[in-house]
Design a protein around this nucleic acid. Structure first.
Length: 491
RNA sequence: GGCCCUAUCGUCUAACGGUUAGGACACGGCCUUCUCAAGGCUGUAAUCCGGGUUCGAUUCCCGGUAGGGUCACCA
């Protein structure tokens, strides 16, 4: 039985990018589908971009999205990072001796070489190449160094990097999504493997770790295609088995460029903070690049796993379409019970400094649920239930009626509501029946009665039905709002 | 610019050579209706272009075009 191990190497920037979420999800689904393992590895070899707390926040994001992994760093009860799995450490900055050891192997086998070139020299070489319209590659000046010269520089403590010596020829891979990809080695630069600060670059660390962690399938973004040859060469240099590769299409901005912060939110946390449900976000992101069915849009991750096929993932980039996400989020919100909705919405209200009595909040959730797009929408929506929004008397008048009639209806309605049995207020349907019976009995028309009633209760031209509002407010508040409406005419 | 990847409605996608090219979002209409939603029905809307291969190409091949990615001691 072969074990499929996929891994998700996030950048240590401190937040989970939408693209990263999809990469993680596809890795996760692929591993699950094939009964393999999903590994989280932190690729924090760029100490200049080090952000304290980034790993913790990333783990929390993954957790909020219910993306669990078999191996990798996780948080204990105290919020400290602990590791699960026997291929650790899973944080690359803690694996420096491993990379050093492997770099030495490469040096010994002459697949890598010392380079003492300064950043300045590299820059001027590049500029010359650019001017001459030559491919911009390292000119291999340091390959001409004699062993004595190298040792002399080393003993003088000159800063150096280790570079991969790219052989001649051609690199071919069979991508799980794209099929055959071939790149001439002449196009590939002598990539730096070890930086002068002693940290490895992505390329070395990634290949070494993937091998040591027994990763058999590498699923990552399309932006990595052009560096595949470097990785293949490294596997070959070490004499290791080359894993399978699958390069995912990019997620794009509306203008079809790579999804970027400049053009909107890219962090998973941004969307969660706006009140998108994790399961809606997952569903949405999963379908950007893959769809197992011709006529279905709503899938849970659990439903998707058995249907997932990496070979059927789209090859072309997908524009991130917030409108569809909105629709999908609404679909998920509508599956919640009022109680669930209350607990989902409460953190948003708390953050906004609003407190709503729990009974009222549950009633508001019940009647506003179907027009909720994002959980955060409730923050503004709730205001109209706490206090009557300001409005003009004119708004109380139905389009087919006049002010005198509106006032008359409001007065009569108040009497009716006042006379209603208290038991009617526990059920929307009973309230509806009572008001409808009143309208029929007095030979009135719906619009003349219901419009002013609804506006008086909600203070809005668009709102839930008057029966729902009566139910939400109860008799006393409803009557108070009707009196308030009547006063609008006097003012 | 070199190299690489990609190309079905505006957007996300389905169609393993033969379909009236399907679904979803958005948009329009109708129904429902006191309003807004939700829901139901429905309409507009796509195979980038040009060559091949084939009885037959959205589908396979080649070329063009367009878009994107990548060319760091970042991942």
């Amino acid at each position: 039985m072969s074990l499929v191990v996929t891994r998700f190497p996030p950048s240590p920037t401190g937040y989970l990018h939408i693209g990263g979420l999809r990469t993680a999800l596809y890795n996760y689904m692929h591993a699950r589908k094939l009964g393999g393992k999903f590994v989280l590895r932190i690729e924090d070899t760029d100490r200049e971009r080090y952000v304290p707390g980034a790993v913790e926040s990333l783990i929390r994001s993954l957790d909020r999205m219910s993306l669990s992994y078999n191996e990798g760093p996780t948080l204990n009860a105290k919020g400290e990072i602990v590791e699960v799995g026997n291929h650790g450490p899973y944080i690359q900055s803690q694996r420096l001796p491993i990379y050093l050891e492997h770099a030495k192997m490469l040096l010994a086998s002459r697949h890598a070489y010392y380079c003492f070139c300064s950043k300045d020299r590299l820059d001027t070489v590049r500029k010359e190449q650019e001017l001459a319209k030559m491919p911009m590659k390292y000119d291999r000046a340091c390959t001409k160094l004699s062993q004595a010269e190298i040792e002399q520089k080393l003993s003088a403590s000159e800063p150096y990097v280790l570079r991969l010596k790219i052989p001649e020829g051609e690199t071919v891979i069979e991508d799980l999504i794209r099929g055959r990809i071939e790149i001439s080695n002449a196009e590939v630069d002598d990539q730096v493997l070890m930086k002068s600060d002693g940290y490895p670059t992505y390329h070395l660390a990634n290949v070494v770790d993937d091998h040591l962690m027994e990763v058999t399938c590498v699923i990552r973004g399309e932006e990595w295609i052009s560096s595949v040859p470097k990785h293949v060469m490294l596997y070959n240099a070490f004499g290791w088995k080359i894993p399978e590769f699958a390069h995912l299409p990019l997620i794009l901005n509306a203008d079809r460029s790579k999804l970027s912060k400049r053009q909107g939110d890219v962090a998973v946390e941004d969307y969660l903070d706006k009140g998108y449900l994790p399961e809606a976000l997952m569903n949405f992101v999963a379908l950007m690049g893959f769809n197992p069915s011709a006529d279905r849009e709503i899938f849970s991750v659990a439903e998707l796993i058995p249907l997932f096929e990496i070979s059927k993932v789209n090859k072309s980039g997908a524009v991130f379409n917030v409108e569809k996400l909105d629709w999908m989020n609404g679909q998920y919100i509508r599956t919640k019970s009022p109680k669930e909705l209350v607990s989902l919405v409460s953190p948003f209200l708390e953050r906004a400094g609003k407190s709503v009595e729990s009974g009222l909040l549950e009633r508001v959730c019940t009647i506003e649920q179907e027009r909720l797009v994002k959980l955060a929408d409730m923050v503004d929506l709730v205001d109209g239930y706490l206090t009557v929004p300001p409005y003009e008397a004119g708004m109380l008048v139905w389009k087919k009626s006049d002010a005198a009639d509106a006032q008359l209806q409001l007065k009569e309605l108040s009497l009716h509501i006042d006379s209603m049995d208290a038991s009617a207020f526990v059920d929307i349907a009973l309230l509806e029946a009572s008001v409808k019976e009143y309208i029929t009995r007095k030979s009135l028309s719906n619009g003349n009665v219901l419009w002013p009633l609804r506006v008086a209760l909600s203070g809005r031209s668009a709102s839930p039905s008057p029966y729902q509002l009566l139910w939400a407010f109860g008799r006393e508040e409803s009557l108070a709002r009707l009196r308030h409406a009547l006063n609008q005419f006097a003012a």
